[in-house]
Design a protein around this nucleic acid. Sequence first.
DNA 1: GCAGTGATCATA
DNA 2: ATGATCACTGCC
Length: 198
Amino acid sequence: MPDMPRQAHPRRLHPLAADFFDRPADTVARDLLGAWLVVRGADGRLRRHVVFETEAYLGGHDLACHGSKGMTARNAAMFGPAGRWYVYLCYGMHWMLNIVTGAEGLPAAVLIRGVGEHVGPGRVTKALGINRSFDGRPASRRVGLWLEPGGGRVPPRLVERTPRIGVGYAGAWAEKPLRFVVDPARLSTINNKGRPQP
DNA sequence: GCAGTGATCATA
DNA sequence: ATGATCACTGCC
């Protein structure tokens, strides 16, 4: 029997690396829409969740950014090189997952606020079992938590920009449109070209 | 609408 | 040592 028309073979995806993250946080936040957050479970199995909501924290000049008050034990990872995780505990209960962006010494990062069917940054980390142990570590297969490219750039008309959530203390910075959202339902169509995993 | 929750950091 | 703060969530 001749070959069946083959389903596109799942592209062997390489994790997004430092060069992707070594750009302004708002650019990275925008471009992460449609990317995959991949986590290796305790059983060794990989789970993929498509990123649909992010927020950019631009650096020391951004009053909503933890780095704006200088380096502390908590936010040290933000000052490190791009492509590492910055994870911290919020309200004593919720782990917040960020990927560090930009040059070493610039405290910038992107908060991952929504992936797959998980809405809200605290829910994302809870669902994926992410905690402090990832803080400061490179986003890589070795660590067991990384990001991979999606099926293509999400069209601008599908990207909604709003002010960031929960940063009312930041004055004018609270109003900057640095939150990026795309409807996950639209994403699944786009990403089927790049092959999702159930 | 607001209580829960506890690490973190500035102040002392 | 103490107290304010907090990039949130869940239940009232």
